[in-house]
Simulated scan of single mutants.
Amino acid sequence: MNIVPRLIPFYQPDINTWSLEARLLRWLTFLWIALGLIILFSASYAVGIEDSGNGWYYFQRQFFWAVIGLILFKIIIQIPISYILKWSGWGYVACLFMIFLTVIGLGQNINGAQRWLSLGPIQIQPSELLKPFLILQGAIVFGGWKKLNWTVKGTWLGIFAFTLACILKQPNLSTTALCGMTLWLMALAGGVPYLQLMVTAMGGVLVAGLSVMVNPYQLRRITSFVDPWADARGDGYQLVQSLLAIGSGGEYGVGFGMSQQKLFYLPFQYTDFIFAVFAEEFGFIGCLLLILLLVSFTTISFLVAIRCHHPTKRLIAVGVMIILIGQSLINIGVNIGALPTTGLPFPFLSYGGSSVLSSLMLVALLIRVAIETNITEKTSV
């Protein structure tokens, strides 16, 4: 028996309400997840044997979180956006509280950063789980910006600033920058005056500059990506190995499972630099097809945003598109040396349960917006 209708008012499971955009987004998401599991298996097999004696170790854990995420995905696309927005604030507060716990020293330190919380055998990254709720709250604020008084505006801007400061303190400059740019672009799409946007942008650049000055490793990352070969065994090592992997792929790749760089030459080969392994094994043609998938997803997301006339829902679509596609492009840029090295994962490709859950929640919100837009258009005819 399906108990969801009893728990959620206005439950709408009818597949006939789905628009073409919603259906395409769903199948593109399934394709994206499947591709991610395939390349993750290859990229993590040797590391799995080294870490646990089981080459399937990381694949199995990723598959588990993908199943949990798909269950959550199915639930979210059946819940009205109005109901989700009603409770999204509590999710935001919960994620912000977990981020704050990492800042005060209760997080798990991995590679010099406290970005994770341990719940028994499970590690979660609160800053990843925050992203869907950040989009929802940003859509509420900037979607109704002109109607809000300055007390409410100032309160929410302060909450957003405090959130970004906590993420930056972990330290996690890349996620801070991504979340900050996402909010800024959502504000731009929501019609916030240009002067206010310019002042905010200048403040963000200033904070980023101060962070680089305070954290020497961030400055080294920026300078090393300009000429990684100058210090190929030091700060430029990751990028050099990534470029070697991508260059080795040639036109058609060396073949699935045949990457050499993943065999402990390329650091973080199943997380931050998984694109390099993909490029080595599937080559230039494979990379083109992956980019085609991203372009298709972007185009459909953009169409959803254009069709939607509800300001808050439109900003949800815009925010989801920015997070998922922007993060993917940044990851690719890092791997090919176009951007400084960051710790941003490639959605659905990089290993990480929190990232998978967050990404599936984001896509579900986008599909829900497409469904409700289609319902509105049908009822208004």
Rank of each mutant, 00 (worst) to 15 (best):
F264H: 15
A279M: 07
L185N: 05
I222K: 02
V226F: 09
S224D: 05
G203I: 04
T200H: 02
P228V: 00
G250E: 14
A189I: 00
Y252I: 12
S248H: 09
V205N: 02
L206K: 00
M258I: 00
L210K: 08
D231A: 06
V207D: 02
M181Y: 05
G253Q: 07
Y217V: 04
K262H: 06
T182Q: 08
L219H: 00
A230S: 15
M186N: 06
A187Q: 06
V240G: 06
K262Y: 03
F268I: 04
G191E: 11
G257P: 11
L266F: 03
D272Y: 03
G209Q: 08
Q260L: 14
Y237W: 13
L178F: 06
D272G: 02
S259R: 12
V226A: 11
A187N: 06
M258R: 14
V254Q: 15
Y252K: 11
F273T: 01
S248N: 15
A279Y: 06
L239D: 01
D231S: 09
A245N: 03
K262G: 03
G257W: 10
N172M: 12
L183M: 11
T175G: 14
W229I: 06
A201V: 12
L266K: 05
A208M: 14
L195H: 10
G204R: 08
L244F: 13
M213C: 03
M258G: 04
A177E: 13
Q238F: 00
T223L: 15
D227K: 12
L244H: 11
G209H: 07
G247Q: 08
Q241G: 01
Y265S: 02
P267G: 01
G234K: 07
V199F: 12
F256M: 15
L183Q: 08
P193K: 13
R233Q: 15
V254D: 09
G255E: 14
L243Q: 10
A189K: 09
L263V: 14
A279F: 05
S259P: 05
G253P: 05
G255M: 13
L243S: 03
G250Q: 14
M181V: 11
V226T: 08
A232E: 12
L183S: 06
D231F: 07
Q260A: 13
M181I: 11
W229Q: 12
L183E: 04
S242D: 01
V212N: 04
T175C: 05
M258K: 15
S242F: 01
W184A: 08
N172A: 15
R221K: 07
Q241N: 13
M258E: 15
L183F: 07
R221C: 03
A187G: 08
Q238N: 14
S224T: 05
T200G: 10
R233G: 10
A232M: 09
L195F: 14
F273W: 04
V199A: 13
L244C: 10
L239M: 09
S259F: 13
K262V: 02
